[in-house]
Design a protein around this nucleic acid. Structure first.
Lengths: 233, 233
DNA sequence: ACTTTAATTGTTATTACAACACTACAAATC
DNA sequence: GATTTGTAGTGTTGTAATAACAATTAAAGT
């Protein structure tokens, strides 16, 4: 099976930056590494690419392993290949980022990994070059979310506009005028107003909305303005 | 040196999609593959990642090998890892795209590879999944160029506004009103008007411009509108 | 002097955007 | 049942960005 003789073969890993939103802050899910080197230190969830699986399959497997979730938003971020990034043996890592509904995440499943959610501003020291991966994932999510409706992936099926606004404000670390925000998101034609309200946040209650999946898929690639001055990324 | 025992090791390659602009059309540089499998067929320039080099280094090495160029615009595009993409042996490939000044390209150096420029609409059948790589590179370049000034990398140091417009029209396969285009690009503050003219294209001659490198680096990440309706990508 | 070719420049109508403040609702309290 | 409380929801207007549109200028060639 080794036909390209004389060429170096090396380890290939996949690391996942898993984003969640708890209603207030954007967070990522980290584990305590279970093996050497760096055993016991905070790390992204990752794993080696197996013989018979594609990179996407590996990423999905790893994501499911930790969260129990399948079919969620997962996108290849970047591939990191510095020869010395893993001191034990050269390992090239393909980073993916995932956007999940934090409420669907099952704590039990990931107990083995001692997984914990960290708000982005308080991420602990990570192993290898994973700090850089997280930073790049943060940039990518901002970049993309400024123009494409990816942040809906972080919310439950039913959500309110105030919830959505808090999410955008959290991701972009800014405040947005609620009248303009409301106009902006409703103008996309991506939202369907539901009959019932979320009474948790206020006495009056806020109407639930859900995504119009038709328009969502159709317009996903279009450029939309979700953020007033997206230059300051 | 093999410390993560029992894990699969595999081949890692880098493939380069090399873009050039001849004054009329956007083109990519292809070679005839020199070894089996698919020997003699059209292919992207590529190579295996060596033991001691990073991915960026590998990409730069491969680019230089074919074009003789160094220090040009080179960006990681995507990593392709389908288990069967190379029928001979599993090889994961990290694709990069390069934007070069086609006039600096030395034909002699790449004679060994039987390299040829192909306009994007007439790319021949390529090996493995390289068709997909080219298509994704085309999309990425459009996406990025709609908002960031990357296309200048395809032009010589001195260029005229009509030349620039033809480039944009070629990349986006559209026509742009020249008055509005001129205003748009000059409004970026990225251009410095020079004293001399290019008399090749017309009797009157068009003023040369060059990049204001200060502003170029400073504003590179900002969102600018180079294209009227960028939605139709 | 006239023709030819492409470069250069300006105005206007339309649209998108940002700034800004009050009213509506429903639950809880008095 | 009237009042308080806390957030949801909505409209207007000035300003800036954009798109649509045509005439003039420069220089070479005839």
């Amino acid at each position: 099976m080794l036909k390209y003789s004389k060429q170096t073969r090396l380890l290939l890993a996949v690391d996942c930056i898993i984003f969640g939103f708890d209603g207030e802050l954007l967070k990522i899910l980290l584990i305590k590494r279970g093996f050497q080197p760096e055993k016991g230190n905070w790390s992204l969830m990752g794993g080696f690419v197996q013989n018979d699986e594609s990179l996407d399959q590996a990423a999905n497997r790893i994501l499911k392993q930790l969260t129990g979730l399948e079919g969620v938003y997962l996108e290849q971020l970047y591939t990191y290949g510095d020869p010395n990034r893993d001191p034990l043996e050269r390992t090239v890592s393909v980073a993916y980022f995932a956007l999940i509904d934090i409420h669907k995440y099952e704590t039990q499943i990931s107990a083995d990994y001692h997984a914990e959610w960290f708000q982005l501003k308080r991420v602990p020291k990570l192993i290898f070059d994973q700090q850089e991966m997280v930073e790049q994932a943060r940039k990518r999510i901002r970049y993309k979310a400024a123009m494409h409706p990816i942040l809906f992936e972080l919310l439950p099926t039913k959500f309110t506009i105030p919830q959505l606004q808090i999410l955008y404000e959290s991701v972009f670390n800014t405040t947005i005028d609620k009248r303009n925000f409301s106009k902006r998101v409703l103008a996309t034609g991506l939202l369907i107003k539901l009959a019932d309200k979320d009474k948790a946040g206020s006495k009056r209650g806020a109407y639930y909305y859900q995504l119009n999946m038709q328009n969502y898929y159709a317009k996903f690639q279009a450029f939309m303005n979700f953020i007033p001055n997206p230059d300051a990324l």
